[in-house]
Simulated assay, not measured.
Amino acid sequence: MKRLHIIGRKNNGKTTLVVDLLRELATRGLRVGSIKHTHHDHQLDVPGKDSHRHQQAGAAVVGVLSRSMSALFIPTHDEMGASDRYEILAPAYRECDLVLVEGDVETPAPKIEVWRAAMGSPPIAGQVDGVLALVTDDQSSLDLPSLPRSDIAGLADWILRYLIS
């Protein structure tokens, strides 16, 4: 699974950038998947629903199928490494040319950071490893390639050159 993580501090535009990139890459004919990473412990299923009851009864994996959407609830465990969590999902993304992951600064996978000076905090890139570039329309003192946030087509070109070529 070819992954690129879009990282950044809160309210710097991660979700908007991921949506813009998904739209741009899809119009180019690429099959792009997405994953939203969170460090919070969310209950993804709804307590009381049948699928949640299946999980509580001990099902190893719970699936929900409807006419318009399918979902799998796969438990993860604290002792699993970060890469193991992505490997669990890999089969669902096997037909994708690329997977954009929103978040996960701790991954060893390639990352780009979206950053806006107006938010008043420095880029994360100076504090974590593996950040390939800064996506911003602002000036930065970091020694990283700076990719214009306002140029989604150019950013998509850069991503494809880096990950797909």
Rank of each mutant, 00 (worst) to 15 (best):
R85F: 04
A117M: 05
R53N: 10
A92T: 11
D50H: 07
P122Q: 08
P108E: 10
P123L: 00
S121R: 15
P122V: 13
A92Y: 15
D129N: 13
V46Y: 10
H52V: 05
S68I: 09
S51D: 07
E113N: 09
Q127L: 14
L44F: 15
D129L: 12
A71S: 14
E79M: 03
V99P: 06
Q56C: 08
D129P: 11
I124G: 04
I112M: 15
G48T: 01
R85A: 10
C96P: 06
S121H: 14
G48Q: 13
C96H: 00
C96R: 12
D84M: 11
A125R: 02
Q127W: 12
E102Q: 11
P91G: 05
V61S: 04
A60C: 04
D84W: 08
L65H: 09
T76Y: 08
G48Y: 09
H54Y: 15
G126H: 02
G58T: 00
L72I: 04
P123S: 06
Q56N: 08
R94H: 14
V61M: 00
A59N: 06
V99M: 04
G81E: 14
M69L: 07
V101W: 06
V105D: 08
G58F: 05
V105K: 15
A90G: 01
Q127G: 03
G48V: 00
V62T: 15
P91W: 09
G48K: 10
R85S: 04
Y93D: 07
G58E: 10
A57H: 03
D104W: 13
M119Q: 15
A90C: 01
W115S: 09
D129K: 12
E95T: 14
S121Q: 02
V114M: 04
M69P: 00
T76P: 06
A60N: 02
A118Y: 06
D129I: 04
A90K: 01
P123G: 01
A92F: 15
K49L: 08
I112K: 04
V114T: 02
I74E: 04
A71T: 13
A57L: 06
L65F: 12
F73R: 00
M69Y: 09
D84Q: 13
D104F: 12
E102L: 12
L89D: 02
M80W: 14
A92S: 11
R94L: 08
L100Y: 00
P75D: 01
Y93E: 08
L100V: 03
G103Y: 07
L100W: 10
A118K: 13
P108F: 06
M80T: 00
A71M: 13
K49Q: 11
V64Q: 09
E102T: 11
P47W: 09
G103L: 12
G126A: 14
V62E: 01
S121W: 14
P91Y: 05
D45H: 03
L98S: 09
H52Q: 10
T76I: 14
D104E: 11
R116T: 02
I124R: 07
M119H: 14
A71L: 05
H52C: 03
Q55A: 15
Y93N: 05
L72F: 14
R85C: 12
G120A: 11
E102P: 12
P75W: 02
E95P: 03
R85I: 13
V46A: 09
T76V: 14
T107V: 10
L98P: 12
A57W: 06
A109D: 15
A60W: 05
